[in-house]
Design a protein around this nucleic acid. Structure first.
Length: 824
RNA sequence: GCCGGGGUGGCGGAACUGGUAGACGCGGCGGACUUAAAAUCCGCUUCCCGUGAGGGAGUGUGGGUUCGAGUCCCGCCCUCGGCACCA
């Protein structure tokens, strides 16, 4: 009994993160100190973290994305910005539906339970999120507007319906999402090999913006993300060339190819179509019919990943017919092969085996002629053993022989355009955005199919098209909406006759393409957002998140904003001015993720060491953009340091003898630290920021032992330390701020400024190198002259030992850096 | 294959525009306090030779530029991400 009481009294003065974190979180919430309002005279700063998917558990990987950006947001706030740093949930998606199928829980219930749990975990982090602005994409008040945007895009001509191949399991008779195709292209449920099936689906015309999406001027994004998006768009300059068709009974008199190398046109020895090309049937001669049909069927059975795998043996079949190369009037045989993709260019290729590696392999396999038409500039007449894909000098090219590839390119294009045999053009790898999902748990596409009127958009006043609560979840793989008569059967908004609803829902990337607009006015119910508030906050000043979204979310959001701008709904064309990607957290050799089963929950660390320690440790691992390995024992270092800081602040400092020199030194240290912490925060170097704060506390411990500075200066040092610590360890800093007699709250205080004069070093240590090797060091005043340094250095015993009896060839003095002596 | 990041002590990582390599932390060793342990505090800790002062080597690897290279240039190796038969 006695023991316990003693212990308790002792504990009251010890750092107790569990107690103080809970207490401050409650107080901050009650006082609403993080509530965000528009329109005071501070400059605004929109600091956004990618919102999480509602998987159910927040793991250390999530904290790694969120804690440092909260630190940055807090830092900006203390610097005097009006900061919006919101949080919400990406709440539609497949896992919710799978849970419904396997466990019989309704997706809504599953999702909202997860949100409940995640919100609780997020709150334990102690971030400045204003929960009044929370956005949840699966709620009707949100997806009503997702549907509204679909209609806007539809009316702007940016949405269209087309047949497109989807993954199809012949055994389950169902459509599969890419992530449901496992291993070597088989169905995740039954293991059957997945094939392709054409379905009518909805697309957004993102390709219309291909050119503009290549333009990154005016936005500060990581180079590698920009490169990834550029590669994704895959712009190629080239020409479309029309080959003449003289096929009996065929109306079409020409067929087009896209090429980036019109200069190689005289090297065409065969012509290739993709097996899916619409003319395959008509260009097949009766003798070839059986073989062609068999090949086409075989191609359809090939899974996508096999087809695009590199290094496969070339396959193909001759159709029996020919096309004419108008430039040299040659008849060339038409083949089909699966390495020609139906979705790129025109789905047809001119075969130039001498100058294309793939065509070369194909020609070798099927013993087709290989005719060189380009040679290297230094060519000596040797034989061609592999495709020469570089530029060079044209040979065997009629009137163009002798020109360089570049000249030939232009000359041939000129001729093609003059004769009407072709034209210069640009091709993109980018395809339109397929937004249809044959799923329940997404925003329903607000369209109705009427027998009389055709496709009819749901009128705006009838939004949202609600998800029926009574759909049945069976493992059929098809949308439960399809089998829900109360949903499907409706009346036509135009003619009031019977009609059916579209049963596909929208890709969830649609929901995440505009959520950052909704945060500005989450409760607005007559529009998706309040235009004035979007004007005030947008574009996002800093967007942080994982690089895995480079060509999905980040790309779609850019498109979306450009489309909204063109409709006059917003007045900017780029959503995210500054993008920063944090690295990934590795655990047990893999990226931490729920699907890999290697997650570490923050909860137990929070319970044991406190949220401040977890926040701090994540930032201390290394540079934020590089990520790193989570280790259980590394965190104790931060925890110990926070304890040490507590002890340092809580102890009663008593001055023994005030020494002006040490006071000066401490003042210098204070300002040096403010500068370092400020600059490190500015460039997201949280690890070195913490290192410098640790150096500061180490230094303060020495001062505390020596007790040779005045009490006011000591207090100044401590206050400054707490302010610098506040973004990183908000709870601890607040507690100590109050305990040292300051007014509540530290989080409404201003960031400390540093005095450049006080940052300057007065004394510097100069290393002395002799013939490039470090031999001595000398402490000098920072204002020392070059002549003084040289004299001083040459007089030193250790230097003399190397210079006596030798000739000094050179003495280099780099001010404040180094003295380098060259002797012989 | 192409594009991009990265290779620094036992470990995570520092190092400004080329100027004292290894800050800070973890771990380890030694010491103080304790009956003891934990916690805490102090000291040491790149490797090799040397009792020591000191000397030598050293940032994946081989060259180069320079008074001086982790940092710049050329060639190679490993590793992590992205894209991948895109005509």
């Amino acid at each position: 009994m006695f023991w316990i009481e003693l212990n308790f009294c002792y504990m009251a003065h010890k750092y107790n993160p569990q107690e103080i974190e809970k207490r401050w979180q409650e107080k901050w919430a009650i006082d609403r100190i993080y509530e965000v309002k528009e329109g005071d005279n501070r400059p605004e700063f929109y600091c956004l973290t990618m919102f999480p998917y509602t998987s159910g558990d927040l793991h250390i990987g999530h904290w790694y994305a969120m804690a440092p950006s909260d630190v940055y947001a807090r830092f900006k706030r203390m610097q005097g910005y009006n900061v919006l740093h919101p949080m919400g949930f990406d709440a539609f998606g497949l896992p919710a539906e799978n849970a419904a199928i396997s466990r019989g829980i309704h997706p809504y219930e599953w999702t909202m339970n997860n949100i409940e749990k995640m919100r609780h975990q997020l709150k334990s982090m102690g971030a400045i999120y204003d929960w009044n602005r929370e956005v949840i994409t699966c709620l009707p008040e949100y997806y009503k507007w997702t549907q509204w945007f679909f209609l806007k895009l539809y009316h702007a001509g940016l949405a269209y319906r087309a047949k497109a191949p989807v993954n199809w399991c012949p055994k389950c008779q169902t459509v599969l999402a890419n992530e449901q195709v496992v291993g070597e292209g088989s169905c995740e449920r039954c293991g059957t090999t997945v094939t392709k099936k054409d379905l009518e689906q909805w697309f957004f015309r993102i390709t219309k913006y291909a050119e503009e999406l290549l333009d990154f001027s005016g936005i500060n994004w990581p180079e590698r993300i920009k490169i990834m998006q550029k590669n994704w768009i895959g712009k190629s300059d080239g020409a479309e060339i029309f080959f003449a068709l003289e096929h009996e009974g065929l109306e079409q008199k020409e067929i087009r190819v896209f090429t980036t190398r019109p200069d190689t046109i005289f090297g065409v020895t065969f012509f290739l179509l993709s097996p899916e090309h619409p003319l395959v049937g008509q260009l097949t001669t009766p003798e070839q019919k059986a073989e062609v049909a068999e090949y086409v069927a075989w191609c359809r059975r090939q899974p996508e990943y096999m087809r695009t795998a590199l290094g496969r043996d070339k396959t193909g079949v001759f159709l029996g017919s020919y096309v004419i190369n108008r430039l040299n009037r040659e008849r060339v045989p038409v083949w089909i092969t699966d390495y020609v993709l139906p979705t790129y260019g025109t789905g047809a290729v001119m075969g130039v085996p001498a100058h294309d590696e793939r065509d070369f392999d194909f020609a070798q396999k099927f013993h087709l002629p290989i005719r060189p038409v380009i040679v290297p500039p230094d060519w000596s007449g040797g034989e061609l053993t592999q495709a020469y894909a570089e530029l060079g000098i044209m040979i065997n090219s009629g009137q163009f022989t002798g020109l360089s590839s570049e000249q030939g390119y232009e000359a041939i294009c000129d001729l093609l355009e003059e004769k009407g045999w072709g034209r210069r053009t640009v091709s993109y790898r980018l395809r339109d955005w397929l937004i249809s999902r044959q799923r329940y748990w997404g925003a329903p596409i607000p369209l109705v199919y009427c027998d009389k009127c055709g496709i009819v958009p749901v009128p705006e006043k009838d939004l949202p098209v609600l998800l029926p609560p009574d759909a049945e979840f069976k493992p059929t793989g098809e949308s439960p909406l399809k089998y829900c008569p109360s949903f499907v059967n409706t009346t036509c908004p135009k003619c009031s006759g019977p009609a059916q609803r579209e049963t596909d829902t929208m890709d969830t990337f649609m929901c995440s393409s505009w959520y950052f607009l909704r945060y500005t006015s989450p409760k607005t119910d007559e529009a998706p957002f309040d235009t004035e508030k979007v004007k005030y906050w947008l574009p996002v000043d800093l967007y942080t998140g994982g690089a895995e979204h480079a060509v999905m979310h980040l790309f779609y959001a850019r498109f979306f904003i450009k489309a909204l701008r063109d409709m006059g709904l917003v007045d900017f064309g780029e959503p995210f001015t500054h993008l920063f990607n944090q690295g990934t957290i590795i655990y047990r050799g893999a990226k931490m993720s729920k699907s890999k089963g290697n997650v570490v929950a923050p909860d137990e660390y929070v319970a044991e060491l406190g949220a401040d320690a977890v926040r701090g440790y994540l930032m201390f691992i290394g540079p934020w953009e590089l990520g790193g390995e989570w280790s259980d024992n590394g965190i104790v270092g931060i925890s110990r340091w926070l304890n040490k800081a507590w002890g340092l602040v809580e102890k009663q400092y008593a001055s023994r003898a005030v020494e002006p020199e040490t006071e000066k030194e401490l003042r210098h240290f204070i300002h040096k630290t403010i500068k370092k912490v400020t600059e490190d925060l500015e460039r997201f170097r949280f690890n070195t920021m913490l290192a410098s704060l640790m150096e500061f506390t180490n230094y303060l411990s020495e001062v505390d032992i020596a007790r040779n500075v005045s009490i006011p200066l000591w207090q100044e040092a401590i206050s400054c330390f707490l302010l610098l610590l506040a973004p990183t360890a908000p709870h601890l800093a607040e507690e100590l701020w109050i305990r040292t007699g300051h007014p509540y709250s530290i989080h409404n205080e201003s960031w400390p400024n540093f005095d450049e004069e006080l940052v300057k070093e007065e004394q510097i240590t100069l290393p002395i190198q002799i013939n490039g090797k470090l031999r001595d060091k000398v402490v000098v005043s920072a204002s020392v002259s070059e002549a003084e340094v040289k004299e001083l250095v040459l007089a030193r015993e250790r230097v003399k030992a190397y210079t006596d009896g030798r000739k000094i060839l050179n003495i280099i003095y780099v001010p404040k850096r180094v003295v380098s002596i060259v002797v012989r």
